[in-house]
């Protein structure tokens, strides 16, 4: 039957920002990407004082270029990694030429030593890690207590039996708790990816 338009087409955050130019969507998107870049820079061991400026710069480029993203040419997160990497590289090259102080950027040589594709992959992985981290934070808001405790212990590599002993639980409960958190975590990852990468 032709009764199906009643459900409003659901827009992702990215979709809302790009297609509808929704202000709050832009704001939310901005917060997410900025969070991700902070996260990445931290892992690339950029000093916090430099990081703030860098985040600003990458964000400006990202927001400018977002409208040019073409989903036919590849995954969003690959595109995101590429834009981020090239912006960072440009920033450092510029700083180098201005300050001529090679030493200060010695730590960030990784940004220049590796091939671009490898760097892109590294940054893409950071994005994935960032999303997973955010997803876990969301899960923690809805599932509390023992289940989360069990899951976190399992992340540290402990076996179910060891977790059971440590928390005084049945081994079967450990499996159940872990499965429950895993399930919600994956749903959250999925929904974050939908929100932030598709439109």
């Amino acid at each position: 039957m032709d009764m199906n338009n009643s459900q409003e087409t659901r827009h992702s955050l990215l979709g809302r920002a790009l297609n509808l130019d929704d202000h709050t969507a832009w704001q939310e998107l901005h917060d997410h990407y900025a969070g991700f870049i902070h996260f990445t820079l931290q892992r690339l061991r950029v000093s916090p004082s430099d990081a703030n400026d860098l985040v600003q710069e990458v964000m400006i480029t990202l927001m400018k270029k977002l409208k040019n993203y073409d989903s036919n040419k590849g995954r969003f997160r690959s595109w995101l990694a590429m834009v981020t990497r090239s912006t960072l590289q440009m920033h450092y090259r510029k700083m180098q030429s201005i300050e001529k102080k090679h030493d200060r950027f010695k730590d960030h040589l990784v940004l220049f030593e590796e091939q671009d594709e490898v760097l892109d992959q590294i940054i893409e992985k950071q994005w994935e890690a960032y999303i997973s981290d955010q997803a876990l934070a969301r899960v923690e808001k809805t599932i509390r207590g023992r289940a989360i405790e069990v899951f976190k212990l399992s992340l540290t590599g402990l076996k179910a039996k060891e977790i059971a002993d440590q928390l005084g639980l049945q081994e079967s409960s450990v499996y159940n708790f872990r499965k429950r958190v895993q399930r919600s975590l994956m749903l959250e990852i999925r929904s974050l990816v939908d929100e932030l990468e598709s439109y």
Binding site: I131, S132, D133, I189
Partner: peptide
Amino acid sequence: DQLHSFFEEAV
């Protein structure tokens, strides 16, 4: 990496 591994699986 443990947490990250779920990303792969989820998508």
